[in-house]
């Protein structure tokens, strides 16, 4: 296992999130040092730091890119109870190695730390969902995509449980769906992954399912890119790595019903090879390979074989240089 690129991010504190943009040509990192950095792939194949700024007055938990159709947009959320939408200021072509990011709006509705922030899939327009430790999911929309400074609060969903992470279902053939994970430790028997769906008829978000059998605090959660599959894959990082398939039961009368079709949730895999807490999960673009990181300091890649059995196909050391020196 050789690493192609090592990048000195030079944050002053732990990096909490790293995000590629839609094309994989830009990177954003955020850290406990309250800053956000943006990196651009240069023509020399190296990442260049093109912007770095103090974004919040608390640890920045998550950073996420908007769809490029809406411009170069970043959203961050922080321990300081806010979420901020940033837009890159178009500057002189000659000075492209330093770009400037403007704060377009600050979303201050949360009373507690905002733990996750995600843009909705593009077909829903410019929507942004945040979840916070007070147990709320808030969904904002910029009605005018040309004006990023105006966001209206569309929905506020109360989960009644401290939220740690969330994920939009990226599929466009199904009604909007959000999965939320909780790191709540007070109720050991309560479910920790909730699934909300948007009901077109009542125009409200309703809780459609809770995932049974996940009772440990959830660190991260991610829907796989759907790619036209007949089911959705949801990975959950908790004490171990869990993968669920969610299938919408095909109901021909669905249009007539006021309730959404029931979801059929199946546990696909329970992977314990990290043997410690699993911290982050991420799907590749086709939803065929899952990458996870654990407290054991490794990154593991998982793939299903033709019979649907998930296996670890590779283990990468968190610091590959150490690995080499040992070998």
């Amino acid at each position: 296992m050789f690493v192609q690129l090592t990048l000195n991010a030079d944050h002053k504190d732990l990096i909490h999130d790293v995000a590629y943009d839609f094309y994989g040509k830009r990177l954003a990192t955020c850290s406990s040092d309250q800053t956000v950095k943006v990196w651009d792939m240069g023509e020399d194949g190296q990442w260049h730091n093109t912007a770095s700024w103090k974004a919040h007055c608390g640890s920045v938990w998550k950073v996420t890119w908007g769809h490029p159709e809406f411009g170069q947009v970043l959203a961050t959320c922080s321990f300081d109870r806010t979420a901020i939408v940033w837009e890159e200021l178009v500057t002189d072509e000659t000075n492209r190695d330093k770009s400037q990011w403007l704060k377009r709006t600050t979303l201050v509705d949360s009373r507690t730390s905002v733990t996750d922030i995600k843009f909705a899939p593009k077909h829903l327009g410019l929507q942004l969902a945040i979840c916070s430790t007070d147990g709320s999911i808030r969904i904002y929309e910029a009605p005018d995509v040309m004006n990023l400074s105006q966001w209206s609060l569309l929905h506020e969903i109360s989960c009644k449980i401290s939220c740690s992470c969330m994920s939009w279902n990226p599929s466009r053939v199904h009604p909007p769906m959000i999965a939320v994970g909780s790191d709540d430790t007070t109720n050991a028997a309560g479910p920790k992954v909730l699934i909300y769906e948007f009901n077109e008829n009542s125009r409200r978000w309703v809780k459609s399912e809770t995932i049974p059998s996940v009772f440990d605090p959830v660190n991260d959660i991610a829907f796989a890119p759907n790619l036209g599959r007949s089911y959705h894959l949801l990975s959950v990082a908790t004490k171990e790595l869990r993968i669920f398939s969610i299938k919408q039961q095909r109901d021909l009368n669905a249009a007539l019903q006021t309730t959404l079709p029931k979801l059929e949730i199946k546990g696909v895999a329970k992977l314990e090879e990290h043997s410690t807490q699993v911290w982050r999960v991420c799907w590749n673009i086709t939803g065929t390979i899952l990458a996870s990181s654990g407290d054991d300091g490794t990154v593991k890649l998982w793939k299903a074989n033709y019979r649907g059995v998930w296996k670890c196909i590779s283990t990468l050391k968190g610091d590959p240089k150490l690995d080499k020196s040992l070998a």
Binding site: V18, A19, Y20, W279, I285, I289, A291, D295, T298
Partner: peptide, 9 residues
Amino acid sequence: DRITLNWSA
């Protein structure tokens, strides 16, 4: 340290 990760397109 807790590792965070991401896939590109």
